[in-house]
Design a binder for these strands. Structure first.
Lengths: 335, 335
DNA sequence: GGGATGGTTTTCAACGTTGTAGACTGACGG
DNA sequence: CCGTCAGTCTACAACGTTGAAAACCATCCC
């Protein structure tokens, strides 16, 4: 920067002003500085800028690992949205371990960014205190309500309810659930289960616990294992509400191995609308939770909070628009 | 840090020394400092540290977007490997635009990290000059050879050849190729095509251009479209070598829609061994290019280069071990 | 002509840390 | 008793940038 200043014949502060688009600069001066920058191939030192200005130009994204297609696609959406605001995204993966999650929040990373997007996983209402971090924070997803922060929520209950109603509309009555979590109430699993129950209630179908499969993790392998367990126990069912697409796809595979036709014998619906659902055999009906909108809004809200006066905004909660996406796995062929 | 020093009754430099594990510190002093740090909840300022020390603790990962399951899984592997070395990963996505790719390399991001992992996409041998960046660089994948940098390579030719031979061993002779790139020689597509040709040659099967489907991008949708095109043209084939799993899965879906049985009518093999291949219907045979090993080795090599004397190491090229993973899409059922 | 005005540029200090070099301390050998 | 030495600790400056405030400089108006 000193070199640039010397070449352009100005002070380093003027170079700084040019770089930062300070308005009151004579056009000719600006041009001389820009030329000098070009000539010398000068690139600002990020660390020094961060140190002096207190902002890093980066936001953190704390989420479960990228192996989940949903989170990979969410990360992609977030990175694109952030790029539109000139921000870089630092991804921090959660292992599913509650202790690690708390350490991540308490750790230095949040302080190395201007703000944090946090796709909550293992924390509960009791952990609200944990969210009292010194940087702007926006939550994605579910779990903690009445927190001190902004929150872009997936409409878990409403979405699961709509998914379940979709199966009921096909005439299915014995509806398996994949992905429930024991004793959980405020997480995705708990909320989606509630949606399922609401739909049953609405249709006058009794809720039966034997149809609920408790699955901790939501990978394909878990869906496959859960379905194998159900089949082994000889449970009868003609529809499956899976709490995410991976579970649904893992389960579908097992169903087909067992000779059940999808959707004829068993109709199947997932949750998340990952790209993969468009290419499975059969294609998977699912609930689009509004992922792109979630990323977009979350970044926007974070940017607002990072801006001047952002600290004084009251906590906001924005529900994303969801919609049921019917595909082949719930489309009974006309024979 | 000043506060910590005051509370512990030492100079700030001693605090710094404790934090950085400087060996010559009296145990009692260290303890007093640690206690003070704890008491005050002190966290080092990353920007200041970066500025003073010249290192950022971050490495860049330049790659195509995370929507490709292969790259999402690779990013995950890289992040885990980096974490083991105490490094953070900054992901930069490529759009597929050659100009953007050059800008990314020329841009400030590489300079904001201690080193860069670069999963080459659109550059060719002619662009070797572009790689002359001021930070340590390790290439992942293919494309540029005899570059000035370290290079962890996928065994594209050998892998594709083994995949093709796998189909030939099943007795298939009319082998479709999905994912070739026009006139390309040194990229994944070119190298994999070469492997395909080698396998045909080895088996005395003539190479026929009508069986080669040129597909620019390698998403599921592209595989589906390519396969639709082939079917529309009435090309006859009994096996498909797809240059990645997404292409294969997209194509498989179209094949099944068209009433072709996989693998009975058409055997199908992909490339990458993404998780999804284990759950498709039927499961997809593929080539495991050694992704975990690639991430691991690449980070290791980058760390070596970032260390003292790293600049003087000669460029190294490490081929990853690959292996064919046979699954149902190439396992003819015994009827 | 002098002061007010507003655009343009500069000076100065500071952000929080670490590298360098040196100061202090006690133990030890001569 | 002094010099040496290893082990500990500290003073100081510097990393490259930007915020605050002041200086400069035309222009304009009374």
């Amino acid at each position: 920067m000193h070199d640039v200043a010397r070449v352009a014949g100005v002070s380093i502060k003027t170079v700084s002003n040019v770089i930062n688009d300070y308005p009151h600069i004579r056009a000719s001066t600006r041009q001389r500085v820009l030329d000098a920058i070009d000539e010398l191939g000068y690139i600002p030192n990020v660390a020094a800028r961060n140190l002096r200005s207190g902002r890093t130009g980066a936001i953190g994204l704390i989420m479960p690992d990228l192996r989940h297609p949903y989170f990979a696609e969410l990360a992609d959406d977030v990175m694109r949205a952030a790029a539109r605001h000139g921000l870089v995204v630092l991804i921090e993966q959660l292992t599913g371990d509650r202790q690690q999650e708390i350490e991540v929040l308490r750790g230095w990373r949040p302080r190395a960014t201007d703000g944090v997007l946090y796709s909550v996983l293992n924390l509960t209402q009791d952990d609200v205190g944990m969210l009292d971090v010194p940087v702007p924070l926006v939550l994605l997803g579910d779990r903690i309500f009445n927190g001190p922060t902004d929150h872009v929520t997936i409409q878990n209950t409403e979405g699961a309810r709509a998914a379940t109603e979709h199966l009921i509309a096909l005439g299915r009555r014995r509806l398996l659930v994949l992905g429930a979590h024991e004793r959980e109430v405020v997480g995705s699993a708990g909320l989606r289960l509630e949606g399922y129950r609401q739909a049953l209630r609405g249709a006058g179908i009794p809720y039966r616990d034997e149809l609920v499969s408790y699955v901790d993790r939501w990978h394909r392998a878990d869906g496959a294992a859960a379905m194998r367990g159900m089949l082994a126990r000889g449970v009868e069912f003609d529809g499956v509400v899976a709490f995410n697409d991976s579970l649904a796809l893992g389960a579908m595979r097992v169903l087909q191995d067992a000779g059940r036709r999808v959707p004829d014998d068993v109709a199947l619906i997932g949750f998340d609308d990952v790209d993969e659902t468009r290419y499975s055999q059969p294609t998977l009906s699912t609930v689009d939770p509004g992922r792109a909108e979630i990323a977009e809004r979350a970044v926007e809200m974070l940017v607002e909070r990072m801006g001047p006066g952002g600290k004084d905004l009251p906590p906001r909660e924005v529900p994303a628009r969801f919609k049921v996406v019917p595909r082949e796995s719930t489309t009974v062929r006309h024979l």
